[in-house]
C-alpha cells in the first residue's frame, strides 16, 4: 500500500443558518493514498463541494482532523494555507475560472507568479505544461478564443504547473458535452497513470468509471467507498476516445 496522502478523521463543517446551522459535513473519515484516482459522487447538497474545499485548504473545518502528506493543516495560518494551495494543490473548477483577456500562457503562469518563480522559468514551465495538455499552439489565445474543452485543459495545465501533490476537480465536466467530457477524463486518467493523485466530483456514472475508487456522499457522510473494477476497461475506452 502506497503512502497516505490525505487523512481525515470525523471532519465536520457547520454553516450558521438562521437560528440553527447546516451540517454540510457530519463527520467524514477518509484516507487516500498517493497515486489514487478517486471519484466523489452523491446527490446535490450531500457535501461533496464542502469536502473538496476543506481538502483544498480553501476553508477550515468546524471540527475534526485533516492531514495532508502527514502534515496537519487544521492549525495552519492564513499565509501558510495560501502556500499549501499554491505548492501542493491544483484546482480544476466546473466553470474553468480563467482570467478573461489574459492569454492561456499567462493563466497557466499565474500560480508560479505567486510562488515567486522568475519570469523566464515561469514561461518555460507553462509552455511545457500546455504542450502536455495538447495546447502548445493555443498558448497565446485568450479564453474567449478557446472552446470549453480547451479552456478546461488550460485550467488543468494551471493546476499542474506547480507540480502539486494532488488535483482537486469539482465537476470539471459539468459544463462540457459528453464527448468532450470523455476526452477530458482520458487526460485525467493519463495524468493519474503518470502518478498524479486526483479527486474528482461528478454526477455522471460514465465519468466516475474512469476513476479507480468511488466515494459516495449522502447528507454530509460517506455512505459508500468501493474500488472500481471497470476502471481498466474505461482506460481503453478513454484512449479510444482520445484517438478518435
Amino acid at each position: 500500500m502506497a503512502e497516505t496522502l490525505i487523512h481525515t478523521r470525523d471532519l465536520v463543517k457547520l454553516y450558521p443558518m438562521g437560528d440553527g446551522e447546516v451540517r454540510a459535513l457530519a463527520g467524514v473519515s477518509v484516507d487516500i493514498a498517493r497515486g489514487e484516482f478517486v471519484a466523489v459522487m452523491g446527490p446535490s447538497g450531500s457535501g461533496k463541494s464542502t469536502f473538496m474545499n476543506l481538502l483544498g485548504c480553501l476553508d477550515r473545518p468546524s471540527a475534526g482532523e485533516y492531514a495532508l502528506a502527514g502534515k496537519r493543516v487544521s492549525d495552519l495560518g492564513g499565509d501558510e494555507l495560501a502556500a499549501v494551495r499554491n505548492r501542493s494543490i491544483g484546482f480544476v473548477f466546473q466553470h474553468f475560472n480563467l482570467l478573461a483577456r489574459t492569454t492561456a500562457l499567462e493563466n497557466v503562469e499565474l500560480p508560479l507568479v505567486y510562488a515567486g518563480v522568475a519570469t523566464r522559468e515561469r514561461r518555460d514551465r507553462a509552455l511545457e505544461i500546455l504542450a502536455r495538455v495538447g495546447l502548445r499552439e493555443r498558448a497565446y489565445h485568450q479564453p474567449a478564443q478557446l472552446s470549453g474543452g480547451q479552456q478546461q485543459r488550460v485550467a488543468i495545465a494551471r493546476a499542474l504547473v506547480t507540480r502539486p501533490l494532488l488535483i482537486l476537480a469539482d465537476e470539471p465536466t459539468g459544463a462540457l458535452d459528453s464527448r468532450t467530457s470523455l476526452e477530458l477524463m482520458g487526460l485525467f486518467q493519463e495524468l493519474n497513470r503518470q502518478g498524479m493523485t486526483i479527486l474528482l466530483v461528478t454526477h455522471e456514472a460514465d465519468v466516475a468509471r474512469f476513476a479507480g475508487r468511488v466515494l459516495r456522499f449522502l447528507d454530509g457522510r460517506v455512505v459508500g467507498d468501493e474500488a472500481n473494477a471497470a476502471a481498466d476497461a474505461r482506460r481503453l475506452l478513454g484512449a479510444e476516445a482520445l484517438a478518435a
Binding site: G56, L58, A82, A83, R85, L99, L110, P111, Y114
Partner: peptide, 13 residues
C-alpha cells in the same frame, strides 16, 4: 471570482 481564483492558486492576503 478573479479574487477567489487568485486565492485558490496561492495569493496571500
Amino acid at each position: 471570482r478573479e479574487i477567489g481564483l487568485r486565492m485558490a492558486v496561492g495569493a496571500r492576503t
